[in-house]
Design a protein around this nucleic acid. Structure first.
Length: 414
DNA sequence: CGACGGGACGC
DNA sequence: CGACGGGACGC
């Protein structure tokens, strides 16, 4: 069942190279060919494995390895572990792409089959407790660590192929080096993405997100650099830049941390629940048009104060307003004729009195950071949105007359 | 008269 | 000769 072979990789005992070794098989179930390459040196070697998966590779592999072996000292010639040393640079492994359900004890059990494990830690989300899919295994002996890499790297567990490599020493400078990139051309490949960012530093991983159904790129992706300063450089160099052959500027920023990612969707959902029904109860039934706005209607819309009540009869279906499909996010309102200096707080102040406002957005020119004359406001309740539109459309803000309506589907392309 | 974003965060 | 899955650094 195991789709790996025991295969010593002496040159990978060199810490500098080991972390760049990749092992893969040509076939998931019956590997005939095993190859590896050292990314930094663009050097790789393939071992043809034709016989038994246990003995054959051991011998073949060991001989083949000698060609690239630099200072292999596999069998007994190594010095004993330094007593009292805290040097775990050769014993500490990072295990990636673990199955979601795998526990720390299962990991410990698996890796203990190689040799004595000093410590084992599965990294979990701080708040949810969910596995983050990676962990650390520290062996007592460097030889066992080597053996674990050669034996367990590439092991298929459930739907995952785990990766076992030497962990970089824990160091502040490698944290926060993961970038989130948006605005990528839909045609851009992962390789092209890496080519774009490789000038800024050493890329550890990259990824372009794609729609699981269509397989098409979502135009966003990730780049993890080796060092945080490299990521910072990439933000400076590439944020707002237009890739060659594209017309759109990309956005480069630090990626969310895993824990904040899971948190972020919950408050929005909660907000919809909390604001929707209780608020309406306080407003009273529809046939009672004297809402809170009727106390001072002239303040917002002197010309339309009586018309405001007529829109409260029914909530339209999603088909009626094309820009507002019935979505959990609410009703999106287009606000036009904003001054260049307009900021978000202006929109909050304008729309807040009409009910729950989920978000506001002032659209700005990237270069000047001045408002392009319009913005968007998303409100939770249809009735509140309608009241806000009817009241604020035509409202004089400074020396400008606002135009306020539900958002349509217009885009630059159409 | 015109004018309708950006985000998206990996199972 | 040839090449790579997927949240990669301690929550």
């Amino acid at each position: 069942m195991l789709s790996f072979c025991r295969l010593p990789i002496p040159e990978c005992a060199d810490t500098q190279f080991r972390q760049f070794c990749f092992l893969h098989f040509s076939s998931p179930t019956m590997p005939k060919v095993k190859s590896f390459f050292i990314k930094d040196q663009l050097k790789y070697q393939t071992l043809k494995i034709t016989g038994s998966q246990q003995e054959g590779p051991m011998e073949n592999g060991g001989q083949n390895m000698v060609q690239v072996q630099q200072n292999g000292n596999l069998s007994g010639s190594h010095s004993p572990i330094m007593t009292g040393s805290i040097d775990d640079s050769r014993t500490n492994l990072i295990v990636n792409y673990l199955p979601q359900t795998m526990t720390q004890e299962e990991i410990r059990s698996l890796f203990s089959s190689i040799g004595e494990v000093e410590s084992c830690k599965l990294i979990r989300d701080k708040t949810t407790g969910q596995s983050l899919g990676y962990g650390f295994v520290n062996y007592k002996s460097p030889d066992d660590a080597d053996k674990a890499i050669s034996t367990l790297n590439g092991l298929r567990l459930q739907n995952k192929t785990i990766k076992v490599s030497v962990a970089r020493p824990s160091c502040e400078s490698i944290k926060g080096a993961n970038l989130y990139i948006s605005g990528l051309p839909k045609t851009m490949t992962q390789l092209e993405l890496e080519n774009l960012f490789s000038r800024c530093g050493s890329i550890i991983t990259s990824r372009i997100l794609s729609d699981p159904v269509t397989g098409l790129s979502k135009g966003v992706g990730f780049i993890r650099f080796d060092q945080r300063h490299e990521a910072e450089r990439a933000i400076k160099d590439l944020n707002g830049k237009i890739p060659e052959g594209s017309t759109e500027a990309i956005t480069v920023k630090f990626a969310n941390s895993p824990s904040s990612t899971t948190k972020s969707t919950i408050p929005l959902t909660m907000a919809s629940y909390l604001t929707a029904s209780p608020t309406r109860r306080f407003l009273g039934p529809i046939h009672h048009p004297a809402g809170r706005y009727s106390l001072n209607p002239i303040r917002y819309s002197p010309l339309e104060s009586t018309a405001a009540a007529t829109g409260l009869i029914t909530t339209p279906t999603s088909a009626l307003i094309s820009g507002n499909p019935l979505q959990p996010t609410g009703w999106c309102i287009f606000v036009y004729n904003l001054a260049p200096e307009t900021e978000e707080n202006t929109l909050w102040q304008l729309f807040g009195p009409f009910g729950a406002v989920q978000s506001v957005k002032v659209i700005r020119d990237f270069q000047s950071q001045k408002c392009k004359g319009f913005g968007f406001v998303t409100m939770t309740n249809y009735e509140d949105s309608l009241m806000a539109i009817q009241s604020l459309n035509g409202f004089a803000l400074g020396n400008r007359i606002l135009q306020v309506s539900f958002k349509t589907n217009k885009t630059k392309m159409m």
